[in-house]
Every structure is written in C-alpha cells, then in structure tokens.
C-alpha cells in the first residue's frame, strides 16, 4: 500500500496554483520552520469573490498536496464559502490523509483564514474574532506557536 492516495500524489506532483500574487488583497501564513511546515496563501478578491489564489508551501508531500487542493476548492468561490472551508473538506477531497498527516490539512484551513482576516483588516470589514484568531494553535505541536 502506498503512503498517500493517488489524489494526494497527483496534487503533490502537479500542484495547482503555485506561486505568488504580488498585489494580493489578502496574505496568510500558517505553520513555522521549526515544526517543518509553512503554508502561505495569496488571495485576489473582487466583489466578495476569490478571483485568484496562489500558494507557497515548505513542507512534506501532504502539506503541498493540501495547499494545492485547498486553493482549488476556494478559487472562484465567494468569501463566505472560503471562510467555512474545513480541514475535513480538504482531506476528503484528497481521498484521505494518513492520521499523522492530518495537521497538514489544518494548516491549509488556517492559512486561508489568515489570508481572509488580512483582507478584512485591510478593508475595515467586521469579522468574528473567534473564527479568525490572530495566531491559531500550531496544528503540529499543539502550542500557540513553537517558533521559540
């Protein structure tokens, strides 16, 4: 049995939406180098629609695949839909991840939330602070941040 599903390997080998948006409307970064994974999401937003999304990831195969899948799931969608994207949805779209790799999908969800929060902050849009925390718990080690 292979370590990852075919879908994970496909997104890992041929990641969608890799890159940077220089004039992004919102940028979010989750994870840290100490834990071994960082995801950065760039959003272009027009009329509450995510018109473009790019990602950069430092991490393992499932981290890269999770980022790629997450960007596909929110591209062209309204902000509200992107905001409610769960790690579970990312995992399911990838046909599952090994148990010890689930945190990778959590990172994808967090990076998107942070990018949206950045967009809200920049544009003075009100949002629920509980839903968009300043610093999400490190999905890896469970601490607020293990970058110490």
């Amino acid at each position: 049995m292979a370590l990852y599903s075919e879908k994970v390997m496909d997104h890992f080998r041929n990641p969608r939406n890799v890159g940077v948006i220089e004039d992004a409307d919102g940028v979010g970064e989750a994870g840290n180098p100490v834990c071994g994974d960082i995801m950065k999401i760039y959003l272009k937003i027009d009329n509450d629609i995510i018109t473009d999304v790019k990602f950069e990831t430092f991490g393992c195969g499932s981290a890269i695949a999770s980022s790629s899948m997450a960007t596909e799931l929110i591209k062209g969608k309204p902000i509200s839909e992107a905001a409610s994207l769960t790690n579970k949805a990312v995992t399911e779209a990838l046909d599952g991840l090994p148990a010890h790799k689930l945190h990778c999908s959590v990172l994808a969800e967090e990076a998107i939330k942070l990018a949206l929060k950045d967009y809200f902050d920049k544009n003075g849009i009100e949002y629920d602070k509980n839903e968009f925390p300043d610093e999400p718990h490190c999905a890896h080690c469970g601490e607020g941040s293990c970058d110490t």
């Binding site: 890159g19 970064e29 960082i38 950069e56 990831t57 430092f58």
Partner: peptide, 14 residues
Amino acid sequence: NMSPFWRDLVNGKR
C-alpha cells in the same frame, strides 16, 4: 522555488 521559508531566506527576512 515553492517554499515561503526559502523566499524569506532569500529576502533576508530570516
């Protein structure tokens, strides 16, 4: 080329 960590190193942020 797809690593934000590497980008930060190149840009001198880390």
